[in-house]
Design a protein around this nucleic acid. Structure first.
Length: 645
RNA sequence: GCCGACAUAGCUCAGGGGUAGAGCAACUGAUUCGUAAUCAGUAGGUCCUCGGUUCAAAUCCGAGUGUCGGCACCA
């Protein structure tokens, strides 16, 4: 007689065995209707599973987060059944729930197209209306493999073969349709509900490996109810509006064209934004005792051979052949080898360490064509790169200082939170285990010192050392790695970097490769999306437009703009013959943060009407006051005095 | 790189085997106007490129290039 403990602490006894559904029914008809699944001692299970021993049971209803995941998972099963019903001969593979929805990968000669969606969705609704119960069954391994092979489902058979011997092999059926699945599921297909939509088709490699066949993936979204679905679709539309490629065009920031794929043509306003970020970064690095350098774009092959890039990175490099001199040069894909050259030029003492060498280094990498994405993923980009040459003892302190600097800079750009991934030793690596123990240990210690929480990213470190990756999320929910910090023991060795220690011996420095923005191009893309083009005043390409109401105010408008420019503000005038309504609309759509409206009254009295983006209030103040206020407000965050905040 | 979709005016898009269409933007003229679109007119296109089918191709077919969505790769 199992004793069942409910969330409120109440205990109930049932004849052995008892199903979750029976327990729910014994509590009340409302719960019996609402319960979709249960947690038994914390483990999510089908409601139909039998409980034979004492356990704590919690019921999952549609409101629970766990239910949402089950709706999506179950919806993937419904999709698979629908597809196999409509397209005989299609093999099923895997179909998990993911953020905001689910997908299912199918193997089929002809891939699906979005035109297939209406028919598939209709079939899915049929299956959901039928409300076939999800029934779990356990099968012996050999039988399970034979079952799928008999059906010609070789991917499923392969999956089972690769499961560990200890794994229980479970099947779930929904009516006549059966799938290999770990579960759990809700009561039946009807619990999926109506709030789903197929979104797109995509290719995906079997088991995520590009050497495997490509499957046809169908992505879908699914929610608790149609209101949630509608809200999600609306959110997607909003995200689309802040896409940096769209805003870049609308605000005339940059363009890319076929003759320079993966490289950016920065227009005046875009370049202004770029320069504002660059100037800010330069001040921050100066203040943090970095030394800025500049190193060559084209470097002879021999240096890349020594650094190891020619061997490890060759396929990502642009090569330039100089026929007259019989030389092979490469556009630099990274700055580190060049920085070591500067380090090596002359004799270094331990007194020089830590030596922080920074460069806004323009790099070129031959990225796969399919990876290119607006200005976020390009082939020509500029890193806010630096290499810290230090002793092993200094690694922890330098790391802590770096993370503090990075967090402060992200905050200045409006990013309050970011994720940190700690990538530790990969399978293929250089250096001894002791070295790795030390490197990882000091990095962990540094994270603790800086109060950094990280998630472990096992085996993803660089071959020369562990790294931290700092990840920001864009408007459409995509993650972008921006900052990085890598501990390197290898390059100083390969390029023979040395310093003289206190005891007169020659020693190898450790190199910390680090970047905060990552690349200006990517970071600006993220920034554009973060602010949806409505930049804070210090970053806005055009900070102020002086707009006239009547042509009698034209001269005054020029005076106002000149005064603003003298105060360091980026100001334009609009003395066109449009009505003020039209001017306000035009500049609002361009996301100009401040409009100074001047008519006859303002011109005569030396005043301006201040209209801020999206705000209808229009205080009228003196020109002097406006210049002063705006200049203060436009001060970059690192130059503000604390009292002003 | 792989799978799929797409490519028409500066932008957003319609059309479709036989003079290329709209709205917005641009330009010209009129309007001098008080906080998110004043009115009228003008101009603007090798319908991505190259081949093929056809009496005729922007339209159909093929190849290429680019873009977009994924996958793989990655700052």
């Amino acid at each position: 007689m199992p004793e069942i403990t409910l969330p409120d602490g109440a205990k109930r006894h049932f004849p052995t065995p008892v199903s979750g559904a029976e327990i729910a029914a014994s509590i009340g008809p409302g719960l019996a209707r609402a319960a979709l699944a249960m947690r038994v001692d914390g483990e999510l299970q089908d409601l139909s599973r039998l409980i034979e021993q004492d356990a704590a049971v919690t019921f999952i209803t549609r409101r629970d987060e766990a239910a949402l995941e089950m709706i999506r998972h179950d919806c993937a099963h419904v999709l698979a059944e629908a597809v196999q019903a409509l397209f005989p001969g299609t093999q099923v593979t895997i179909g998990p729930a993911i953020e905001n929805g689910f997908y299912y990968d199918f193997a089929r000669n002809a891939p699906f197209t979005p035109e297939d969606f209406p028919a598939i969705e209709a079939k899915m609704r049929e299956i959901i209306a039928r409300n076939a119960p999800f029934a779990r069954s356990v099968r012996p391994r050999d039988e399970a493999i034979a079952f799928f092979e008999a059906k010609g489902e070789r991917f499923k058979a392969e999956l089972i073969r690769d499961l560990p011997e200890s794994e229980t092999i479970t099947f779930y059926s929904q009516g006549d349709w059966v799938d290999l699945c770990r579960g759990p599921h809700m009561r039946g297909t009807g619990d999926v509900g109506p709030a789903f939509k197929l979104m797109r088709v995509a290719g995906a490699y079997w088991r995520g490996d590009h050497r495997n066949p490509m499957l046809s993936r169908i992505y879908g979204t699914a929610w608790r109810d149609t209101a949630e679905l509608t809200a999600y679709l609306h959110q997607l539309e909003e995200a689309e509006k802040r896409d940096h490629r769209r805003i870049g065009r609308e605000m005339n920031l940059f363009h890319i064209q076929e003759e320079a794929v993966g490289s950016i043509f920065w227009h005046p306003h875009g370049w202004t934004l770029y320069r504002a970020v660059e100037a800010y970064m330069r001040r921050r690095l100066d203040a943090a005792a970095y030394q800025e350098v500049r190193t060559p774009q084209l470097v002879d092959r021999s240096l890349w051979e020594r650094s190891g890039h020619w061997e490890k990175f060759r396929e990502h490099m642009f090569i330039a052949i100089v026929e007259d001199e019989d030389k092979t040069l490469a556009l630099k894909p990274m700055n580190c080898p060049c920085h070591v050259q500067i380090f090596n030029h002359g004799i270094r003492s331990y007194r020089d360490l830590p030596l922080r060498m920074a460069e806004f280094g323009a790099c070129h990498r031959y990225e796969p064509s399919g990876a290119l994405h607006g200005i976020m993923r390009v082939r020509a980009f500029t890193q806010d790169d630096a290499h810290i040459f230090c002793t092993q003892d200094q690694v922890a302190t330098e790391t802590a200082q770096f993370v503090a600097l990075l967090a402060d800079i992200y905050r200045d750009f409006g990013f309050e939170s970011f994720r940190v991934k700690f990538s530790d030793r990969p399978e293929r690596r250089a250096g001894s285990d002791e070295t790795w123990d030390r490197a990882e240990g000091s990095l962990r210690e540094a994270c603790a010192m800086a109060g950094v929480d990280y998630e472990l990213n096992p085996g993803e470190g660089a071959f020369y050392g562990p790294k931290l990756e700092f990840v920001l999320r864009d408007a459409i929910g995509r993650d972008w790695q921006c900052g990085t910090l890598q501990v390197d023991f290898i390059l100083p060795e390969r390029l023979d970097a040395l310093y003289t220690a206190e005891d007169g011996t020659r020693r190898r420095p450790v190199m910390l490769h680090r970047a905060i923005l990552g690349s200006f191009e990517r970071f600006l893309g993220i920034l554009i999306e973060q602010y949806a083009g409505r930049f804070p005043l210090w970053l806005a390409p055009v900070q102020v437009v002086v707009a006239t109401i009547v042509s009698d105010a034209d001269t005054y408008a020029e005076t106002v703009a000149a005064a603003l420019r003298r105060a360091g503000l980026r100001a334009e005038t609009d003395t066109g013959r449009e009505k003020i309504n039209a001017k306000i609309r035009t500049h609002s759509l361009r996301h100009v943060p401040v409009l100074l409206v001047v008519g006859r009254r303002e011109a005569e009295a030396g005043l301006v009407a201040v209209r801020r983006l999206g705000v209808e209030a229009q205080p009228i103040i003196s020109l002097d006051e406006a210049v002063q206020t705006l200049a203060t407000e436009a001060t970059p965050p690192d130059l503000r005095s604390p009292s002003i905040g």
